[in-house]
Design a protein around this nucleic acid. Structure first.
Lengths: 233, 233
DNA sequence: CGCGCGGTTGATCAACCTCAACCCGCGTGG
DNA sequence: CCACGCGGGTTGAGGTTGATCAACCGCGCG
């Protein structure tokens, strides 16, 4: 099913942690768009579970280059990769609500709250798989293929709503930093996709898939100029 | 400490699961170099814990491109990213011994074996951090920087033994597929590193670091031609 | 109005890929 | 013993992709 053309599974809403699992006392925090939940190097005194909204996780190299290592929405667990210090920075890209769990409660969590522990375990496994899929995308695909993969992922995410139409919750620069490209390249490819009739951008942040099969072919490693896809052009 | 120039922490031997944690009944399997433990798409009826030796985890795109998503040695847990089917193929690159845990025992593992469960939790967190570090390397660094990062990672791994001297347990092609490069590029950069006096290859699979600080500078995003590093040349 | 931010577009360039030849060590078999 | 092929690696020439640098657009806002 999900072969190596891999989608970013952490973007999916499936398997999310239900609030019912949480102990009633877990506090709910709210964070506004563009605020940071934590920075790389901060002490990790909590882990967080996103309830609604979107955040981006990223790392910064000393030369200023950034790499977004994941986007996360409802159900995702943040901060589990860290031991004592956060390894990523985390910034809300929309308004966000989340629950926080003190790091101290992680010790012995299996005994104290086995249901939560197993949910967390499953969720980390999912995130690991997503990170690996993203490795395959960044490491082995062309700019065109990366963008096709990315758009399909976001589209799948929103297929609960109107088919083939969805919001892109991040800017061009975020997409570029996620895919290991420059924002100019993302911009060029987006317009190219549109010019070829594969997608339609109704606004900068809203997209409609016109030729989903072409994108799927690309995302799985196919060429853009195959004759078999011109039949519908 | 480990800022974004990120090393592949899963390569480190630290934090490995001790056999004492395992229930005595866990069977030990042996696998010879170049044999597969499992393939992408196989049913995941076990997870595995590596005891000794090295394996590579990889995904294959339909056009034949491969991406190695991680190398694993003693202490690593394999198969946790999967739900019902393995998402990666896993091949031994040296002779390997490992223990297997039936997938059925994962349900309720927190109750039945909380010590093991928490070790697995920590280990997956580590692997997730490693995958994210690798994302930053692949997505945001040049070929030169990627190779410097990679060599330092392997070197750190072996710093238990003779300082600055270590084995590369994989071939050029594996390094390339891990770093998102072509093997010709890896080969070229390796000889270039050697020509510049940064490393010395005593054999194809044995390396000695002569100018560790130069590699560190590169790995953190620095330039190769800075004057400040020629003082020791 | 002027400015800044985010995005688009164009021209140029270099890093890396591609394809091909070649080297070397090794095992095999005539 | 040598010829041969093979796997893994290195090296070279040339092409392409995507980065770089710069100009420009549209919009919102002080």
């Amino acid at each position: 099913m999900c072969i190596a053309g891999g989608r970013i599974q952490e973007l999916r809403g499936t398997g999310r942690l239900t609030t019912g699992v949480m102990t009633p006392a877990s506090p709910t925090n709210e964070v506004r768009a563009h605020e940071h939940l934590f920075f790389e190097g901060d002490a990790r005194d909590h882990i967080y579970i996103v309830e609604s909204g979107w955040v981006k996780l990223y790392r910064t190299l000393i030369d200023g280059q950034r790499q977004i290592v994941g986007f996360a929405n409802g159900g995702s667990v943040l901060g589990v990769e860290a031991d004592t210090l956060h390894l990523n920075s985390c910034e809300a890209i929309t308004d966000v609500t989340m629950r926080s769990i003190p790091a101290s409660r992680l010790n012995g969590i299996c005994r104290s709250d086995p249901a939560l522990a197993e949910q967390v375990l499953r969720q980390i496994g999912r995130q690991l798989g997503a990170a690996q899929a993203q490795l395959a995308t960044i490491g082995a695909q062309s700019a065109e293929q990366k963008l096709a993969t990315f758009l399909l992922t976001i589209a799948d995410l929103c297929e609960e709503s109107l088919d083939r139409e969805f919001d892109l919750p991040m800017r061009r620069g975020d997409m570029a930093e996620f895919l290991g490209l420059r924002l100019e390249t993302v911009s060029r490819k987006m317009t190219e996709f549109q010019r070829r009739g594969w997608i339609k951008l109704t606004s900068l942040y809203h997209c409609r898939l016109l030729q989903r099969h072409v994108l799927e072919h690309l995302a799985q490693g196919g060429e853009a100029d195959g004759a078999q896809m011109l039949q519908t052009g």
